[in-house]
Simulated assay, not measured.
Amino acid sequence: MARIPYADPGRPEHREAAAHIVASRKRLGHLHRMLLHSPPVARGWIEMYDAVRWKTVLSGKLRELVMCQVAAINGAEYEWAAHAPIALREGATQAQLDALPDWSKADVFDAQERATLALCDAMTRHVHVPPDVFAAAKAVLPERELVELVVTIAGYNCVSRVIEAFEINGTDPLP
């Protein structure tokens, strides 16, 4: 059970933000219902993550691999459950998803994926990225994609932290 009740999208102060979310995502999920407690945050959240997910040139496969890796590192099962199917649709394999917890020892990732995952691990586990890890990512991605990758990793660390702080698990009944 989430630590606080989910917001009621029917309340007058939540309606506009709820409509904004539904226009983008087609539904109000558990995370969105929690964010509705602060309508400006809910709207801003959707704008930010719509940009990260649908307005970047970073490959969908890399984007979803790092989202899943962030979820794996942070123990965010709700986030993993949301993004693993998308990762498969974007070209990741089940073998890659299975290997994520110990990806550096697996032979299922190419050089670009390995550099991307190393950057993800450094940002997620340590915040500070060693120069050689950043240089490896910089060598395989153009600057725009590198910016998009870093923002995606940072953003989905935020997602998992919000989900885990509120204990959102996706199974709670929504009123």
Rank of each mutant, 00 (worst) to 15 (best):
M1L: 14
M1H: 15
A2E: 08
R3T: 06
I4Q: 13
P5W: 11
Y6T: 02
A7T: 12
P9I: 10
P12K: 08
E13F: 10
H14D: 04
H14K: 11
E16W: 01
A17F: 09
A19K: 07
A19I: 01
H20N: 06
H20Y: 15
A23D: 14
S24E: 13
K26G: 13
K26H: 15
R27D: 13
R27A: 14
R27C: 04
L28Q: 05
L28V: 07
G29S: 08
R33H: 05
R33G: 03
L35S: 07
L36T: 11
S38Q: 15
P40Y: 09
V41A: 15
A42H: 06
R43P: 03
G44H: 12
M48T: 15
A51V: 04
A51F: 00
R53P: 01
W54G: 01
K55V: 00
K55S: 08
V57K: 15
L58R: 03
K61D: 04
L62N: 12
L62E: 08
E64K: 07
E64P: 04
E64T: 07
L65C: 09
M67P: 02
M67L: 13
C68M: 06
C68V: 03
C68F: 01
Q69I: 00
A72L: 00
I73S: 08
N74Q: 10
A76R: 02
A76M: 03
E77W: 04
W80S: 02
W80E: 01
A81E: 14
A81R: 15
A82Q: 14
A82M: 06
H83V: 02
H83D: 07
A84P: 04
R89V: 03
R89N: 09
R89M: 09
R89G: 12
E90G: 02
G91D: 07
G91K: 09
G91C: 09
A92M: 02
Q94N: 07
Q94K: 12
A95E: 14
L97F: 05
L97M: 11
A99T: 04
A99R: 08
A99P: 02
P101G: 12
D102P: 00
D102T: 13
D102Q: 15
D102A: 15
D102H: 12
W103V: 03
S104V: 00
S104L: 02
K105Y: 01
K105H: 12
A106C: 09
A106F: 05
D107F: 12
V108M: 09
D110Q: 06
D110W: 02
D110V: 03
A111L: 00
Q112L: 00
E113L: 11
A115M: 08
L117S: 06
A118V: 07
A118I: 09
C120R: 01
C120W: 02
D121I: 00
D121E: 14
A122P: 05
A122Q: 08
M123Y: 01
M123I: 13
T124E: 08
R125C: 06
R125W: 01
V129Q: 01
V133S: 11
F134I: 10
A136P: 02
A137F: 03
K138G: 11
K138M: 11
A139N: 11
P142S: 12
E145V: 04
L146D: 12
E148Q: 14
V151W: 09
T152N: 13
I153Y: 05
I153S: 05
A154M: 08
Y156S: 03
C158P: 00
V159L: 14
S160L: 00
S160E: 02
S160N: 12
V162Q: 13
E164F: 00
E164L: 14
A165T: 08
G170D: 11
L174N: 03
